[in-house]
């Protein structure tokens, strides 16, 4: 593995002594579409190795929030600051576009609900995984391919599929490929938008387990947007419940789910179908 991308390994939730500074600071973030509120005055910190779930129904503003934080959508007001690998703090919307895009494809990952939005469907799985490496200057075909094969293995895709296009993959495989493509540069922060959205339940379980394992193994910080409380329970440490663009409840995931305080959260939790 090339050296600059392995630095972030292993500081997963090592707690008070080590990473006592957040990785990401979101302060007073708002986005309005004219008179309509996308998200309103959202603030939170995210620490290295921490997984934050943002839950709510369609239209609650969770995806707007995710896009504003990940610099994919310009917020109306507020600030998003990020601690760079050299520990300097940078405000994302004051960075140049070139630097921001570089950050997005090296130190960050974005997993889309629809894998076709995050993959290049007409190039091989190997090239999909290798693209980020090539984008940061890797110029050795053999190494790129070996790294791609390694990552495909980590997301449980057989080596002999490395030259196949994702068009030939199932939905679950595509989603796993998308994850590998994002993680190959060892990002420190990953955004996921309904990562299990369109998948069959059995496929969901496998993916969730995989994501859970990778997140803890690599010490990733993650923001996961989902409407599925079971996904939030399994993946996240902390949870934010949104409704109509506002954060109605925010806390430790099991506390929010086991002892919901806000009326809306109680409704949400009581609406889960029991199996």
């Amino acid at each position: 593995m090339t050296s600059p991308y392995s630095a972030a390994k292993g500081d997963a939730m090592t707690g008070q002594t080590m990473s006592d500074e957040p990785l990401l600071r979101v302060a007073g973030l708002s986005k309005s579409y004219g008179a309509r509120v996308g998200c309103d005055d959202v603030s939170f910190d995210l620490w290295p190795g921490e997984v934050l779930a943002v839950v709510g129904e369609s239209g609650s503003g969770k995806t707007t929030l995710l896009n504003c934080v990940s610099t994919r959508l310009l917020p109306t007001s507020g600030a998003v600051s990020y601690r760079m690998r050299d520990d300097s703090w940078r405000e994302l919307y004051r960075m140049g576009e070139a630097e921001r895009r570089f950050l997005m494809r090296t130190d960050w990952g974005f997993v889309h609900q629809n894998p076709a939005d995050g993959l290049r469907m007409t190039v091989s799985a190997g090239a999909n995984v290798g693209e980020r490496l090539m984008a940061v200057g890797d110029r050795h075909y053999g190494n790129i391919r070996a790294t791609a094969v390694d990552w495909l293995g980590r997301v449980e895709i057989a080596e002999d599929r490395v030259d196949d296009q994702p068009r030939a993959f199932s939905g679950g495989m595509r989603q796993r490929l998308q994850i590998a493509r994002n993680l190959v540069t060892h990002p420190r922060l990953i955004f996921m938008d309904e990562p299990t959205g369109g998948l069959d339940v059995s496929v969901q379980a496998r993916l969730l387990d995989l994501v859970r394992g990778l997140v803890s193994e690599l010490g990733l910080a993650a923001i996961v947007v989902t409407h599925d409380l079971a996904v939030a329970r399994l993946l996240s440490h902390r949870m934010m419940v949104m409704k109509d663009g506002h954060v109605v409840e925010h806390g430790l995931t099991d506390r929010v789910l086991d002892d919901p305080q806000a009326p809306y959260t109680q409704l949400l939790v009581s609406s889960i179908l029991q199996v």
């Binding site: 070139a98 895009r101 091989s124 190997g126 090239a127 090539m134 984008a135 075909y141 391919r145 490395v162």
Partner: peptide, 17 residues
């Protein structure tokens, strides 16, 4: 922005195939 990783993706595909 000089983001030319994609050009190598094309060449990578050539070698892979």
């Amino acid at each position: 922005l000089e983001e030319y990783g994609l050009m190598h993706v094309k060449l990578y595909e050539d070698i892979a195939r």
